[in-house]
């Protein structure tokens, strides 16, 4: 058990070192992240122009929301992109992964952990400390709020990871995922509350969003971070994330098993 864990950690270590070697990649990613933040910051500032608070959310809270949301998105984006998984399926490289004595979904998770921790320590963390110090938005005040936020953000990461990898594995059947992929990305970006929090949705859409797994990715951790979800309200939200994580992970396992049976190496 301990030995297996050590083997997976080795992937994390290697990928951390690999990220350190590709500096330019890291830089362009962080510049992209800053520009997104700038654009969305301006848009929310303009939207709040002339309003003190909308749906009981003040501009101060919203600023904090968008900042933490962009920081989390920066972390999520440092993982292996979907197209790379699809590329491996299309080229047949995935077959080599299956021959090796490890579990592919777990190995990918640990590999991503390496590039993410590198990106987090060298770029996201210093950058956002400076930005938070400059704008001084609301931040969690107690250690327990910080702890719950980190727990919730980690659950959100795992939910997104399971969903995205599951989707990537659909390439085994679909080969070309064009249109479906765009709907998938759109659902993640809208229903996760990545740029527009669920509070501002029309009621019917908010109800729909609360029935989907995506809100656990950014919306719940963000809401805990800015203190909009607090006290007793946090527990059902975290429970929601845990339940969705179990479902999404189960789905990933199911699809992975089916895909392993169904492997078609093209052009072989």
């Amino acid at each position: 058990m301990m030995k297996t864990f050590k083997m997976y950690l080795e992937f994390t270590r290697k990928s951390f070192q690999r990220s350190a070697a590709y500096r330019v990649d890291s830089w362009s990613r962080i510049i992209g992240n800053i520009m997104s933040l700038g654009i969305w910051g301006c848009i929310w500032f303009a939207l709040y122009h002339g309003h003190d608070s909308v749906e009981n959310i003040s501009f101060q809270s919203m600023l904090s929301y968008i900042l933490i949301s962009m920081a989390l998105q920066g972390i999520h984006n440092a993982g292996t992109p979907l197209w790379e998984i699809q590329y491996r399926v299309r080229t047949g490289d995935i077959a080599f992964e299956m021959l090796r004595p490890y579990d592919y979904p777990l190995r990918m998770l640990f590999t991503d952990l390496g590039s993410i921790s590198f990106h987090f320590v060298t770029a996201i963390l210093p950058l956002y400390i400076v930005i938070f110090a400059l704008f001084q938005p609301d931040i969690p005040l107690s250690a327990s709020q910080w702890g719950l936020f980190i727990l919730s953000a980690a659950l959100g990461y795992l939910i997104r990871y399971s969903l995205e990898l599951t989707f990537g594995l659909f390439t085994f059947w679909l080969i070309e995922t064009g249109g479906v992929e765009d709907v998938f990305y759109f659902s993640i970006s809208l229903f996760s509350g990545s740029v527009v929090p669920l509070w501002f949705f029309p009621d019917w859409l908010e109800r729909l969003a609360s029935l989907l797994p995506f809100q656990g990715i950014y919306f719940i951790p963000n809401a805990i971070f800015i203190g909009e979800l607090s006290g007793q309200e946090i527990w059902p939200a975290l429970l929601n994330q845990v339940i969705w994580l179990i479902i999404c992970y189960g789905l990933l396992r199911f699809v992975w098993n089916k895909a392993s049976m169904k492997i078609v190496v093209q052009g072989g």
Binding site: I43, E176, V183, P202, L205
Partner: peptide
Amino acid sequence: AFVMNILGWAMTYAGTAITMWVMLYSFGSI
């Protein structure tokens, strides 16, 4: 692939338009 590509692009942009609509739902105007 050709049809999927066209559909995909149309949907990506429709998605951005829907996001704009949701965003302006509570605020009215920007």
